Computed example of a mutant assay.
Amino acid sequence: MLRDDQVKVLWMSRIDYEKNTGVKSHYHDDLYQFLFIIDGKGSIQLGDTVFELLPNHAYFIPKRTEHSFFFSNASSTIDIKFDILSPAVEKFFIAESETIPSIIGDSQKLKDLFKLSVMNLQHAHPLIPYRIDVGFKDILLSIIQEKTMVKENNSRSLYALKQEFQPDFPVIDYLSENLTSPITLQDISNHFNFHPHYIIELFRKNLGTTPMKLLQELRIEKSKEYLEFSTSTITEIAELVGLSAPYFSRLFHTREGISPTDYREQARTVVGKHILLEEEFSHSLKNQPLIYKDLL
Rank of each mutant, 00 (worst) to 15 (best):
D4F: 02
D5K: 11
V9P: 01
L10D: 08
K24R: 12
K24N: 11
H26V: 10
H28V: 13
Y32S: 07
F34G: 09
I37H: 01
Q45G: 03
L53R: 01
H57S: 11
A58E: 01
A58D: 00
K63V: 10
R64G: 06
T65R: 14
F71C: 14
F71N: 14
S72G: 13
S75A: 14
T77P: 09
D79T: 07
F82Q: 05
I84W: 01
K91Y: 13
T99R: 15
L110G: 03
H123W: 07
A124L: 00
F136Y: 08
D138Y: 06
T148L: 12
T148A: 11
M149A: 12
V150Y: 13
S176P: 01
T184A: 09
S189N: 02
N190C: 01
N190R: 08
F192S: 03
R204E: 15
T209P: 03
I220Y: 00
K224T: 07
F229Q: 05
T233P: 04
V241M: 04
A245C: 10
R255T: 14
I258W: 05
S259N: 09
R264C: 01
R264Y: 01
V270D: 02
V271M: 05
K273H: 03
H274V: 05
E278R: 13
F281C: 11
H283M: 06
Y292D: 11
D294K: 06
